[in-house]
Nucleic acid binder design. Structure first.
Length: 486
RNA sequence: GAGGGUGUAGCUCAGCUGGUAGAGCAAUGCACUUUUAAUGCAUAGGUCUUGGGUUCGAAUCCCAACACCCUCACCA
């Protein structure tokens, strides 16, 4: 464990400075500092007219340092932004030897009077200086920041302060999630946590990660969806329930897929998919209103207009429009699929239809669009439409050609649910069916009676991508999965 | 899994058709009390991702490995 760490010359120089600081009798790793204010708050509250002159205490990392001899200007950064410190030898005579030893990347605390320089920059004229943490590694270059994508992901702890827009993006993410919680709590939804480790990975058709419990000597799956547990809570009598938490899917990585991702699922008893549609539109629009500058967002090459009302178009209609054939004309559909190169012979009709849909339709759905009424066979957990029994009361919300939400009127008939679990859909992938396994306890729960309900799932990472104009999911996940080095 | 791209100083990047490496920032030293990527002068900094090969000679050409990025495939 304690193998000698190879240190660079630059690091050794910094360690030498650290030793010098210790010899001055100063703890280079500081301690508690009271009444610290965010730089942004200090900036906002500053008023030249207030007498006597205001004071402020700030703490953060040194990102710029301009040493002019007996005067040093420091740009200090915290999560709220930056503020300039002015350190004058006159004011800090007793600490001057220490101050001359601090450098870029160190974390310091500074207290003093606020004022403007002759160029109008708000400055804390420091009269109390505290070293809070000596940095013994070189920070990245001040102008370009940290640009190497791999390093940015591996060392997010550097990326966050080396590239201020990264901090802003993640703060926006946190604020949006907090808004979502508030929105749902206001409407009487309870937030719950259901098992991440499950003995049966249900609620979706994805490949799970497998782990092992030693004491029980059983394999467990990391969940691919919380759905079946949240519905058990509907059976249990929690009428309005939601969970925001991680799902894990053992599949390929892409700019839109991370193996662990954050999913929100909402269930509301006595509702249906129409109510979920309203809820979705209201939720996302209220987020846009609160956290975005306009109702139009740039997302890669797309310009997305979030203005209400959002379009609602039946699946079959979109299919017809973009695939150029009628959804019931199976012969024409199979011919088309063959042209594109699907192995259509092995697939059920519905699977081909859906593949064609994904291929032809999705890329056209730029502005928020509810695709409604899915072919019933594609939706084993959904209640069928009373008027059109071949269709399920399900919608998917597409924004920026990306699937953002998926919702349906929940199937609450235990016998039909059992039937759907046990009948296989052919051609949807070999491994996939293995894991559409039968959760008998879930059927038992349904047998006790689950109220009719609307259910909604929103991919939080993707929503954040849209609302921050970020086209790679890794840029909205603090620590995306990377292969280990070496 | 397939194809394409990238990997050079702490960081950001140059480096042509092979001749043992360059800038800016950071660092080190000196000067400087109103700077804004401070400035001026000076100095130092490299297993060119790794391992093979071709060659008198490889950062450069060839092969392989590793990591990252992009596209596709897989994908509830």
């Amino acid at each position: 464990m304690t193998e000698p760490v190879e240190t660079s010359k630059l690091e050794q120089q910094r360690v030498e400075r650290l030793e010098k600081i210790k010899r001055l009798g100063v703890d280079p790793y500081g301690g508690r500092l009271d009444n610290v204010e965010p730089a942004g708050t200090v900036r906002a509250k500053f008023d030249t007219n207030i007498q006597p002159p205001q004071r402020a205490i700030c703490a953060g990392r040194i990102v710029l340092l301009r040493d002019i001899g007996k005067l040093i200007f420091i740009t200090l950064r915290d999560s709220s932004g930056t503020i300039q410190l002015g350190l004058s030898k006159k004011l800090l005579e007793t600490q001057w030897e220490l101050i001359k030893l601090i450098e870029l990347g160190d974390i310091i605390g500074a207290e003093g009077q606020l004022g403007l320089t002759k160029t109008g920059e708000l400055t804390i004229w420091v009269d109390k200086f505290t070293l809070l943490a000596k940095s013994v590694l070189q920070p990245p270059e001040k102008f370009h920041g940290l640009a190497d994508t791999e390093l940015r992901y591996r060392q997010r702890y550097v990326d966050l302060w080396a590239n201020p827009e990264v901090m802003q993006r993640f703060k926006k993410r946190l604020a949006i999630v907090s808004t979502i919680r508030g929105f749902l709590q206001e409407r009487g939804f309870y937030e719950v946590e259901t098992p991440m480790m499950q003995t049966i990975a249900g609620g979706a058709a994805a490949k799970p990660f497998i782990t092992h419990h030693n004491a029980l000597d059983i394999d467990l799956y990391l969940r691919i969806a919380p759905e079946l547990f949240l519905k058990r809570l509907l059976v249990g009598g929690i009428e309005k329930v939601f969970e925001i938490n991680r799902n894990f899917r053992n599949e390929g990585l892409s700019p839109r897929h991370n193996p662990e991702f954050t999913m929100m699922e909402i269930y509301q008893a006595y509702a249906d998919y129409n109510i979920m549609m309203e809820l979705t539109e209201e939720l996302i629009c209220s987020i846009v209103k609160k956290h975005c500058e306009s109702s139009t967002m740039q997302f890669g090459e797309y310009t997305i207009d979030f203005s209400r009302p959002w379009k609602k178009i039946p699946y079959a209609e979109l299919f017809n429009q973009y695939c150029g054939c009628e959804i019931h004309d199976i012969a024409a559909i199979r011919k088309k699929a063959k042209e594109i190169g699907f192995e259509e012979a092995k697939m059920d009709d519905e699977v081909i239809i859906n593949k064609l849909f994904e291929e032809k339709v999705e890329s056209n759905l730029v502005n928020p669009t509810f695709v409604i009424d899915y072919p019933g066979k594609l939706c084993p957990l959904t209640k069928r439409s009373k008027e059109k029994p071949d269709y399920a009361e399900r919608f998917e919300l597409y924004i920026g050609a990306m699937e953002i939400a998926n919702a349906y009127t929940e199937l609450n008939d235990p016998l039909v649910q059992y039937e759907n679990f046990t009948s296989q859909v052919k051609g949807a992938g070999e491994d996939e069916n293995t894991f559409r396994s039968l959760d008998e306890d879930f059927i038992t729960a349904l047998k006790y009676g689950m109220p009719p309900a609307g259910g909604l799932g929103i991919g939080i990472d993707r929503l954040i991508m849209l609302l921050t104009g970020t086209t790679n999911i890794r840029d909205v996940i603090l620590f995306p999965l990377l292969k280990p080095e070496k």
